Structures are given as structure tokens and as C-alpha cells.
Amino acid sequence: TTITITINGEELRIRGDHEEIHKILKAWEEDHNDEEIVRLIRELAER
């Protein structure tokens, strides 16, 4: 699965399995701050 998210003008492409993507979207849905979401995404992007 690949998704693209733009946060603060920075486009981040994430490839991951369903569970990893779900974790990010769940954090977003629960209204975590952008920095935390960006950190989760970067961790995935670095793999």
C-alpha cells in the first residue's frame, strides 16, 4: 500500500503494510499533533 500525505507543504509518500498505514491514519483521526504524525511517517519512510 502506498499513500501520499502533504503536511505543512511537505509531501510524504509512505509505503507500508495495512497495519502500518492504519496506525498513521488512526493517529491522525485521534487528532494527534502534526509533529507526532510526521515522526510516524518518517519512521516508515526510512525503512
Rank of each mutant, 00 (worst) to 15 (best):
T6P: 02
D34M: 13
E29P: 01
G16F: 05
I37W: 05
K23S: 06
L12Q: 02
I41T: 01
T1H: 14
E29M: 14
R39A: 07
I5T: 01
L25H: 02
L40V: 06
H22W: 15
D31I: 05
L40R: 10
G9Y: 03
E19A: 11
N33F: 14
R15S: 08
R15T: 08
E11R: 15
I5K: 00
E10K: 15
I3E: 01
H18V: 11
R39I: 04
T6K: 11
L44S: 02
I7T: 01
V38Y: 15
E20D: 09
E29H: 12
D31T: 07
W28Y: 08
V38K: 10
D17F: 13
R13C: 03
L12M: 07
I7Y: 04
L44F: 07
K23E: 05
I21N: 01
N8R: 12
R47S: 13
R39T: 05
D31P: 04
I21S: 01
T1Q: 11
W28K: 02
E36A: 12
T1N: 08
E29G: 11
E30L: 15
G16A: 09
E10D: 05
W28E: 00
D34V: 13
L44T: 02
R42I: 09
T2G: 04
L25T: 02
L12K: 01
E29L: 12
E11D: 05
E19H: 10
E30N: 13
K26T: 06
H22A: 13
T2N: 05
E36C: 03
H32W: 08
D17E: 11
N8P: 01
I14A: 02
H22T: 12
I41R: 00
I24F: 05
K23A: 12
G16V: 06
V38S: 05
I5C: 03
D17R: 08
T6A: 05
E46H: 10
E36R: 12
E46Y: 11
G9R: 03
G9W: 04
I14Q: 00
N8E: 06
E30R: 15
I37T: 07
I14D: 00
D34Q: 07
R13D: 03
R42H: 04
R15P: 04
E19W: 12
E11H: 14
E43I: 12
E43L: 15
E46A: 14
H18T: 11
L44Q: 02
G16D: 03
I3F: 10
R13L: 04
I24H: 01
D31Q: 10
T1K: 13
L12R: 02
K26E: 04
R42F: 05
I24A: 03
E29K: 14
G16I: 07
I37R: 02
T6Y: 15
K23Y: 07
I41P: 00
H32E: 11
D17L: 08
E46T: 10
K23W: 15
R13W: 14
E43T: 10
I7E: 00
E11F: 15
I7V: 08
K23V: 05
K23I: 07
H32T: 08
E29T: 13
I14C: 02
E43R: 15
E10L: 14
E10P: 00
R15G: 03
I37D: 00
I3C: 11
K23T: 07
E20V: 10
K26G: 03
D17W: 10
K26I: 06
I5V: 07
I5W: 01
R39K: 09
K26W: 09
E29I: 13
R47D: 06
A45W: 10
I21R: 01
D17P: 10
A45V: 09
I5R: 00
E43F: 13
I24G: 00
W28H: 03
R42K: 09
N8C: 07
I3H: 06
T6F: 15
A27Y: 06
R47V: 11
L40C: 04
I3K: 04
H32M: 13
T4V: 13
E46G: 06
L12N: 01
E43N: 08
E43H: 10
L25N: 01
W28S: 01
N33H: 12
K23N: 07
I3Q: 02
H22G: 06
W28M: 07
E46L: 15
E29C: 13
I3L: 13
G9E: 02
W28L: 11
I24P: 00
H22C: 12
I5D: 00
D17S: 14
H32A: 11
I24K: 02
T2S: 09
L40D: 01
T4Q: 05
E43V: 09
E20M: 10
R39S: 05
D34Y: 12
E30Q: 12
H18L: 12
T2W: 15
E36K: 08
H32K: 14
T4P: 01
D34L: 13
L40P: 00
L12P: 00
I3D: 01
R13K: 11
R13F: 11
I37H: 02
G16H: 03
H18A: 12
W28D: 00
L40A: 05
L12Y: 15
E19R: 08
L44G: 01
I3T: 04
R47C: 10
L25I: 06
E11A: 15
A45H: 05
E10I: 15
I24L: 14
I5Y: 03
R15C: 04
H32Y: 09
R47G: 10
E10F: 13
E11S: 15
I24M: 08
K26Y: 07
E30F: 14
E20R: 03
E19I: 08
T6W: 15
D17N: 11
E30W: 13
I41N: 00
D17T: 14
I41K: 00
H18S: 12
E36N: 12
I7R: 01
T1D: 07
R42D: 02
G9F: 04
A27D: 03
E30I: 14
R42W: 07
I14E: 00
L25S: 02
R42C: 07
G16T: 05
N33G: 10
W28P: 00
I5E: 00
H22Y: 15
T6G: 02
R42S: 03
V38L: 15
L40T: 04
E10R: 15
H22V: 10
E35I: 11
E10W: 14
E35V: 12
A45M: 09
L25M: 08
K23Q: 09
A45I: 13
I14L: 13
W28T: 01
N8Q: 09
H22M: 14
A45D: 04
T4L: 10
E29D: 08
E35M: 12
D31M: 12
G16S: 06
N33D: 10
R42Y: 10
E46C: 14
T2A: 08
R42N: 04
I14M: 04
I21W: 05
E36Q: 08
L25C: 04
T6Q: 07
I24W: 06
